[in-house]
């Protein structure tokens, strides 16, 4: 299969899965803004959480998303290992980053690992307390009443996490890593598909900088906003 056997195919897998994750991030951001406008229990944000819950379409979406993450992360490691091997046995004694080469582009794996660590924390704080217990309950497992009654209320979990300054800082670091990762990743994904030329390469770089900054500022704003308004 050329998608895994050729270098461009492997990159295309990274590119498509990456763009899919960017799309997901956008939906996530839009959804979160409901919490800014309607933070009360049973408000707009909780309505969205209730609508998604452990319904079949939300579970299907989660599965597709998980596959996207797995492909992206798995190939990140495969490609990095192959590329290190291609570099040969001896490293350069002196290296310099040439002009015009972004720092992020040469450190995508490290940034990605920070993003995955953040994802672990985020999944533990939200998914494991919302969709997971509901799913487990549907499959007939015995779940604590307290946990189950709060599972549909995203507002409760947001208040739990973002009133703690340590978590606010951790999330801000996470957003910063995502910013670096995406400023390179976005246009790089487009380049891998081949949708660039001398004019559009510059445009895509600018678009990815603006887009990534907006998304990360949006998330960062909310983390800080929740800290001050939900005390």
């Amino acid at each position: 299969m050329w998608l895994k056997d050729s270098s461009i195919g492997r990159k295309l897998l990274m590119s498509i899965s990456g763009l899919f994750l960017v799309l997901f991030l956008t939906f996530h951001l839009v959804m979160n803004f409901a919490m800014v406008f309607s933070p009360e229990k049973g408000g707009a944000y909780d309505a969205i959480c209730g609508f998604l819950g452990a319904n079949w379409y939300a579970v299907a979406g989660t599965l597709v998303l998980a596959v996207g993450f797995l492909v992206h992360i798995l190939y990140a490691f495969i490609l990095t290992l192959q590329n290190r091997k291609a570099r040969g046995n001896n490293r350069y004694a002196v290296t310099a980053r040439p002009k015009g080469v972004e720092w992020a582009s040469q450190n995508m794996l490290v940034l990605g690992i920070i993003v995955v660590l953040g994802l672990g924390l985020h999944g533990y704080q939200f998914w494991a307390k919302m969709q997971l217990p509901e799913l487990a309950h549907q499959f007939g497992m015995c779940i604590d009443e307290n946990v189950l009654s709060n599972a549909a209320y995203g507002s409760y979990h947001i208040a739990q996490v973002f009133t703690n300054p340590i978590f606010v800082v951790l999330y801000l670091v996470w957003f910063a890593a995502i910013w670096f990762h995406l400023t390179h990743g976005f246009w790089s994904a487009i380049q891998t598909i081949g949708w660039t030329n001398l004019v559009w390469l510059k445009r895509w770089k600018t678009i990815s900088n603006i887009y990534t900054t907006l998304v990360c500022l949006g998330f960062a704003f909310m983390a800080i906003w929740f800290y001050f308004t939900l005390q």
Binding site: D5, S6, S7, I8, R10, K11, L79, Q82, N83, K85, A86, R87, R97, P98, K99, G100, V101, E102, S105, Q106, M108, H184, W187, S188, Q191, T192
Partner: peptide
């Protein structure tokens, strides 16, 4: 190119710069 042991492009742009 793949067969001869060259790596996968990650669009860093170092090639173009150098």
């Amino acid at each position: 190119m793949d067969e001869l042991g060259f790596g996968n492009c990650t669009n860093t742009g170092a090639c173009e710069a150098e």
